[in-house]
Amino acid sequence: MTTISTPTPTRPWLPSTKDKLRDLFFFLLSIVATYVIVAITPMKGKLAYFILFFLLYMSLTAGLQYFARGSAAAKDAFVSSLVAVGAVLTVMPIASIIGTVVSKGYKGLHLGILTTDMSLAAPTDPIANGGLLHAITGTLTLVVLALIMSVPIGILTALYLTEIQGSLSRPIQFLVQAMSGVPSIVAGLFILSAVLYPITKGYSGLMGALALTILMIPTVARTSQEVLKLIPDDLREAGVALGGTQWRTVAMIVLPAARSGLITAVILGIARIAGETAPLLLLTGGGDTVNPNAFNGSIGSLPYYIWKSFNAGSPEAITRAWAGLLVLMIIVLVLFTLARLLGTRKVAR
């Protein structure tokens, strides 16, 4: 009887140590060459480094592949590096923005920003005076009001387009698409002239939220529609074949199946409006005091606060603006995380 010896598991398709060392060598060579070229030529600045490095690295790897395996492999290596460059170029501005906001904004943070507003402080005062409470509560009020109005309308529109597919589907589809291109200042001016001047005759959170709703509906509707289209017709047929009406089938089967996608639609909607500034400048009045009444009187918001602080111009005011940006980004992040948790809770169980 022979014993079968188990071979060691190997992964022959992965690059060998020699290949990795060679790639690392080319990577370092590109960096060194970039420095040398920038030093001896008139090219200057960060951009020159980036462009030269990518060009050198791409041509070096492509050249290596050309001599090792021919032109097809060279093209493959070239396109691979091009794709990598594209990905890096996408991430760079985002990382850069986050880095800048955090590094400049943290100086303006102190515990008082969560407990006080700007009613007793001017933007040019020392940082420790006043806080962001009015802006944070204002932004949350506006976002929540806009959510309450736009999510039902957006999802009902998506249901009309995917489930009912009525005779108005085509024009509605066209209008929703056109609506997603409406500049935010237009939404603001529309509410100003159609509601604020003729009816309420005064600033309020509701006016701002109405304009934000106009901006949010197309995002929610279009994303929800794409999600609902992905739900297989099998499920709708099964629901109806079990004696369900169309509404019962949609409510019990289609919407729950699309749940996490619909949450994404809401997240994208929040992302669309959280930092909107133009309509709020026209409609909310941007007070410096916490206003618990969303339906009457000026209400502050983070974008308004940032805009106002930048306009004040002193170093303290500029720092306040950066701090406001940081807080806005944190709030958006918290809302995203909350929505994501709500959306996946049932699946995780």
Partner: peptide, 25 residues
């Protein structure tokens, strides 16, 4: 009706799937 492709409702448990017709109707 039973369909060609098995199509249990993805958001429901096994038990809920069996009783889904009662809820639907």
């Amino acid at each position: 009706m039973v369909f060609q492709k098995p199509n249990p409702f993805p958001s429901m448990t096994i038990g809920e799937n069996v009783l889904s017709g009662l809820k639907l109707s």
